[in-house]
Design a protein around this nucleic acid. Sequence first.
DNA 1: GCGCTGACTGTCA
DNA 2: ATGACAGCCAGCG
Length: 101
Amino acid sequence: MKNYPRVGKRQGQPAFRIPSSFKNNVHKVVRQIPKGQVLTYKEVAYRAGSPRAYRAVGNILNKNYDPNIPCHRVVRSDGKSGGYNRGSDKKKEILESEKAI
DNA sequence: GCGCTGACTGTCA
DNA sequence: ATGACAGCCAGCG
């Protein structure tokens, strides 16, 4: 049987509060990521209030590229860097630089 | 208001 | 271990 990732109930309950939209939440969460710390899209989605919105997270970051948002600190669960607006190559560099510190 | 897309994730073959 | 497929979410046209 396919044990799908769906927990069953809608856990779309924000642990803290909903500023406005999921997008805003994602923004906030990613910005709160400490230097040298990387979170997976799933983690970010969970923090944003939707554990299954990892798709939306990528969609938001991809279209809404902000200099204040270290999207490079968001990586895939596979351990890959994923993508980056400036180029995955740059993302890797930044990640290594911050990780090294 | 509806439909498509996307920087994803998890499971099966 | 690698590849392919399916599923869910929110934003945007």
